[in-house]
Design a protein around this nucleic acid. Structure first.
Lengths: 339, 339
DNA sequence: GTGAAAGCGCTAACAG
DNA sequence: CTGTTAGCGCTTTCAC
């Protein structure tokens, strides 16, 4: 490996000077500049980022903590986050907590403030306490995709108005004439998806529609859970003409359940999700959903993190992304039956 | 930030001793050990990984270079790779080259040998030369998912027998009685997917079936390209009863094309892909495909990389994963029509 | 303009 | 068993 000193030696100068020309710092004579550049070139010198990080006091890396990068929602976010990080000259470390608090803690202990300069946290599985501790140790933390703009957390965050998303989805179904709607909530009662559900309920209330508690299911946020749940719902409650899911994954599962039951979508049953992941438009019928601004959320999150790092802002800032947008595709239609 | 020295001071010892305690190195007296541990605890000390990396000469990170982590195939690989890396005490940095050579080069220049201790490369978009240069600068490089076990590259790699995968897929279709099969090749002619196509052709030859050149299409490796291509093929060549795609993405696109054309799968047309990505089993009808051992390939790749790093092996080792396996689902069936 | 020197936080001999 | 002494490769004052 070539070091700064070797380059310096070849160029007949000192390391400090090489460092200066490489980062366009202090004014360096044109002569020496050229000589240094030549030396760098012939030696194929590349700065040692770890050494630089130590000297500068911070590493050029940001960490993204997710429960599993394989969750179909994350990759798009991760891609956008990586781009934004890259644009600021930083690298992105992916940390899969695997929904495990211990793993998450281990990551926090190890990277916060040493290997990585800041943290992007996607899943609230990590206790707020741990995150705050990590932050105190010197690594700013930004919570991405916070679900409740009304209840700001104690840490900086990028919030998405999921209540609105739920309301938009519900309203769409209601506008189509649906009166018997099932709700698939991708979390425990009062869990992470409850805002979306509340939004949906508010749409019902606004329209004078009474949502029956027996039509809602609290399930896992997965295609499989949505499938199983929808299967039972559709078989046992024939009055249903639509399904609202708090996320695309269960909605896609419901789509499959309908298909396997021989039900036509949207003729027999309308289905709507939230997020607009890639699969949504690729499914058949393509899924109607409420699109969440994933890319801009990722960019805002990185931006906020960088501001926190450079200390140009302070405290628990919260920024809300653009409001989610209804994307009408083929899985929802005007109600045909009445019950 | 708490440093080793501060801990040492509190414990009334020297930094070296604290270091020893923390890594269970040289024998330390039980007394001091306890005192040190207590100091670590009260101060909430966490080792500074960057400093450690500099001192040890290598960072505890591995880099995964992919064209886009959002490609539905990568996340699963990345997840497995991250786990394996983690198991060895290392972190995973995700590098999206975005199919751009410049971006790839920039990454190589910056992380190889300094920020990261080794590289996992997924897409051969990067010139072999660049990769070898990076390797010479001190960072072992492992090529993942090499497509041609018969033609080992000049760098260590994990190869998958894609020729076999293609042959298995072709044979399956032939066994079902299909005689007019279209081939969707997800790369340019003689491109990255050509082995898969050759495997398919060999199955045809073995069975005395003649594959017509006019039935093959060289396209992008995407759902969209598969969709467009299949749409045209199915409309213009009614004799076709099956479609073989070199990858699941185009196969899924073909599935959608069939659906939009009102064709029933597999009654009217059978479709098979290669890889077995998540969506394959979630599509309706679920996609029959030839599963590639993604997880074990990722694990092998990390293992090989670690061996290279510890110098326990040398040269351009090639390891081949288990042979791909046929996964029969609902998108293929016995041929109904004869042409 | 360029060089000298100190130090980032930790590890790794080697002494004692 | 524990302390001392050197660095790892780079940045950054501060002199010259």
């Amino acid at each position: 490996m070539t070091t700064l000193n070797e380059v310096a030696e070849l160029a007949g100068v000192t390391a400090a000077t090489v460092s200066n020309v490489l980062r366009n710092r202090g004014k360096v004579g044109e002569q020496t500049r050229l000589r240094v550049l030549a030396a760098v070139d012939t030696l194929g010198y590349r700065p040692h980022l770890t050494a630089r990080a130590l000297a500068e006091g911070c590493a050029p890396t940001l960490a993204l903590m997710v429960s599993s990068i394989a969750n179909p929602f994350y990759p798009e976010f991760a891609l956008a986050a990586e781009r934004a990080a890259r644009a600021s000259g930083r690298f992105l470390i992916v940390c899969n907590t695997n929904e495990d608090v211990e793993t998450g803690r281990a990551y926090l202990d190890q990277i916060a403030g040493s290997l990585s300069e800041g943290l992007l946290v996607m899943n609230a599985k990590l206790p707020m306490e741990e995150l705050k501790k990590a932050q105190q140790r010197g690594a700013p933390v930004v919570l991405c995709m916070w679900e409740k703009p009304d209840a700001p957390p104690e840490l900086p965050c990028i919030a998405v108005d999921f209540f609105a998303a739920g309301a938009i989805a519900g309203q769409h179904l209601i506008d189509l004439g649906h009166r018997h709607i099932a709700a698939l909530v991708g979390s425990k009662k009062n869990g992470i998806h409850s805002e979306r559900y509340k939004g949906y309920l508010s749409a019902c209330t606004t329209s004078g529609l009474k949502h029956l508690e027996c039509h809602t299911r609290y399930i896992q946020d997965s295609v499989e859970a949505g499938y199983e749940s929808a299967l039972v719902l559709l078989k046992t409650q024939p009055e249903l003409t639509a399904i609202f899911a708090t996320n695309d994954l269960p909605a896609l599962g419901a789509l499959n359940a309908a298909a396997d039951l021989g039900l036509k979508v949207p003729e027999d049953i309308s289905i709507i999700g939230i997020t607009d992941i890639q699969w949504a438009r690729l499914a058949r019928p393509a899924l109607t959903t409420v699109a969440v601004p994933t890319v801009s959320a990722a960019e805002s999150a990185i931006k906020l993190l960088l501001e926190l790092i450079s200390k140009s802002i302070d405290g628990a800032t919260m920024r809300v992304t653009e409001t989610p947008q209804l994307v009408i595709r083929a899985s929802t239609g005007v109600v045909k039956r009445s019950a």
